[in-house]
Simulated scan of single mutants.
Amino acid sequence: MSKFNIPGTALITGASTGIGATYADRLARRGHDLILVARDTGRLGALAAKLRGETGVKVDVITADLTNKADLAKVEARLADDASIDILINNAGVALSGAFVDQDLERIESMIQLNIVSVTRLAHAAAKAFAARDRGAIVNISSVVGLAPELQMAVYGATKAYVTYFTQTLRLQLSPNIHLQAVLPGATRTEIWDRSGSGGAESLDPNMLMEVDDLVDSALAGFFQGELVTIPSLPDAGEFAAYDAARAKLLPNLSRSRSAARYKVGEPA
């Protein structure tokens, strides 16, 4: 299954470096025109010029800080009004290291704004536009951290759990002609480590650190295979399927008219 045979434009957030820039490269080489969104005008311009020269595709740039309401609205409007856009790569995100009680609340709020609010608003604009045309693709970059509270990234992990749940629910609500994918990277060599205050990617176990080219190529392969949830480092897709099946097994008992018998032990007569 592939939705990339449509000749649509891809709008990519967080496109100046790392995962976003790599998506831009791969999609440009597949012939897709691009709209690149990020805060760093210089890097965006350099990447756009490189891709135009190497691939001949049209590349527009939008300088935007997606934690700023006016900038976010500008990108939403482009998604709503530009009928050439068929692909949204919702990639922009940030992490924050350290224990929750030691983290700065302003930085926490900014992370929630970028990782949740901007992802939601951009997906909303794209979904409405794609639904009207009954075609398109929304790829949301999540994280395996959202599956693993043991990693103790309290707010960052919670924002990524949101992104995965959000994507899974959109799949139930939107037309099958609109492809949804949540990509859950593990540790990946990008600048997010330096910006999070964790000491950089070099401080990680190299056996756990994926190169960004491998990550994006795997994510695209998962997209072509029609996956809703892609975990590039997971050797056996059946393991996630079993995890999801165990979750689904809970559903009939999550909301009932009476509490479970195990909570009635020792009740007064």
Rank of each mutant, 00 (worst) to 15 (best):
T167H: 01
Q181R: 05
I192N: 04
I192G: 03
Y165A: 06
G199Q: 08
V183D: 01
I178N: 03
R171W: 04
F166R: 01
T169C: 11
T164M: 10
G199V: 07
T164L: 12
L180I: 11
G199W: 12
H179E: 04
Q168R: 09
N177K: 11
Q168F: 00
R171Q: 15
T190R: 15
P176G: 06
R195Q: 13
Q168G: 03
S198V: 11
E191H: 08
Q173R: 06
S196C: 13
T167W: 00
G199H: 10
R189V: 05
I192R: 04
G197E: 14
I178G: 05
H179S: 04
S198C: 11
P176L: 02
F166N: 01
L180F: 05
S175V: 12
T164Q: 10
G197W: 12
L184N: 09
Y165R: 02
L172A: 14
T164V: 10
E191A: 14
V183G: 05
E191C: 02
G200C: 08
L174Q: 04
T190C: 15
S175K: 06
L170K: 00
T169W: 01
D194N: 13
L184I: 08
R195T: 13
R189L: 12
R195A: 15
G186Y: 13
Y165Q: 04
V183R: 01
I192Y: 09
A182H: 03
G197I: 13
A187Q: 07
G186Q: 07
P176E: 11
F166V: 00
Q173T: 05
E191R: 08
F166P: 00
T188P: 10
S198A: 14
T169K: 12
P176K: 10
I178Y: 10
Y165F: 09
L180W: 00
P185R: 08
L170T: 00
W193G: 00
L174M: 11
I192K: 03
R189C: 05
N177A: 08
Q168D: 02
E191N: 13
A187D: 09
A187P: 07
L184A: 07
S196T: 13
G200Q: 05
G199D: 09
Q173K: 07
L184W: 10
T190M: 15
R189T: 04
S196W: 12
L172R: 14
D194T: 09
G186R: 07
L170W: 05
Q168E: 12
R189D: 14
W193T: 00
T164D: 07
T188Y: 15
S198L: 06
T167E: 02
Q181V: 03
E191G: 09
T190E: 13
L184C: 14
H179M: 06
Y165E: 02
F166C: 02
